[in-house]
Simulated assay, not measured.
Amino acid sequence: MHHSRLCTLVLDCRVDDLAPAAEFWSRALGKPIASVDQDGDGRYAELQTADDEPIILLQRVAHESRVHLDIETDDIDTEVARLEALGATRIAFCHGRWWVMQAPTGHRFCVVRRQRARFGPHLNAWPA
């Protein structure tokens, strides 16, 4: 058995500087900025959310701006296989840490390792 859940809403932003984007989305959604430069490389900013809400992450990208979601899991390989059985396809394995996938609808999403210390609520348990 493995587990997964909706984890993160990622706002892909084609901008040079995430700070103004973080400020806009912070004010638009009523969520304080948790970090304007999460990893120190200017690629990620995060808004503060409660433990039972999805993480809201802004990501600086080179492609067109869009929104994608991340599914977190305690078994990436098994979750990717489960999603492939539903019709998703693997696009790329990134930084040795997560899979970019594409749904049959054409939407891109990522399968990532567990993101928060507490792995719940709203957790799905999938049989082996």
Results as ranks from 00 to 15, higher is better:
Met1Leu: 02
His2Val: 09
His3Ile: 03
Ser4Gly: 13
Ser4Thr: 12
Arg5Asp: 06
Leu6Gly: 03
Cys7Thr: 12
Cys7Val: 13
Val10Met: 06
Val10Thr: 09
Leu11Pro: 06
Cys13Ala: 12
Asp16Met: 01
Asp16Ile: 02
Asp17Met: 06
Leu18Asp: 11
Leu18Thr: 08
Ala19Ile: 15
Pro20Ile: 09
Pro20Lys: 07
Ala21Val: 15
Ala21Lys: 12
Glu23Leu: 14
Phe24Ile: 08
Trp25Glu: 10
Ser26His: 10
Ser26Pro: 13
Ser26Leu: 13
Arg27Ile: 10
Arg27Tyr: 13
Leu29Asn: 09
Leu29Trp: 08
Lys31Cys: 12
Ser35Asp: 15
Asp37Thr: 14
Gln38Lys: 14
Asp41His: 04
Tyr44Asp: 09
Glu46Ala: 13
Glu46Gly: 13
Glu46Cys: 14
Leu47His: 05
Gln48Pro: 07
Thr49Gln: 04
Asp51Arg: 12
Asp52Gly: 05
Asp52Asn: 10
Glu53Lys: 03
Ile55Met: 13
Ile55Asn: 12
Ile56Ser: 03
Ile56Glu: 05
Leu58Thr: 06
Ala62Phe: 15
Ala62Val: 15
His63Trp: 14
Glu64Gly: 13
Glu64Phe: 06
Ser65Leu: 05
Arg66His: 11
Val67His: 06
Val67Gln: 09
His68Tyr: 02
Leu69Cys: 01
Asp70Ile: 01
Ile71Arg: 02
Asp74His: 02
Asp74Asn: 04
Asp75Pro: 05
Asp75Tyr: 02
Ile76Lys: 01
Ile76Gln: 00
Asp77Ser: 11
Asp77Gln: 10
Thr78Tyr: 11
Thr78Leu: 15
Glu79Gln: 10
Val80Pro: 04
Ala81Thr: 14
Ala85Leu: 12
Leu86Tyr: 03
Ile91His: 10
Ile91Ala: 07
Ile91Trp: 03
Phe93Thr: 01
Phe93Val: 02
Cys94Phe: 08
His95Gln: 02
His95Gly: 02
Gly96Val: 00
Val100Gln: 11
Thr105Gly: 06
Gly106Gln: 01
Arg108Asp: 13
Phe109Glu: 01
Val111Glu: 02
Val112Arg: 00
Arg113Gln: 08
Gln115Glu: 06
Gln115Leu: 07
Gln115Arg: 08
Ala117Phe: 02
Phe119Ala: 04
Phe119Glu: 04
Phe119Cys: 03
Pro121Tyr: 02
Asn124Gln: 15
Ala125Asn: 05
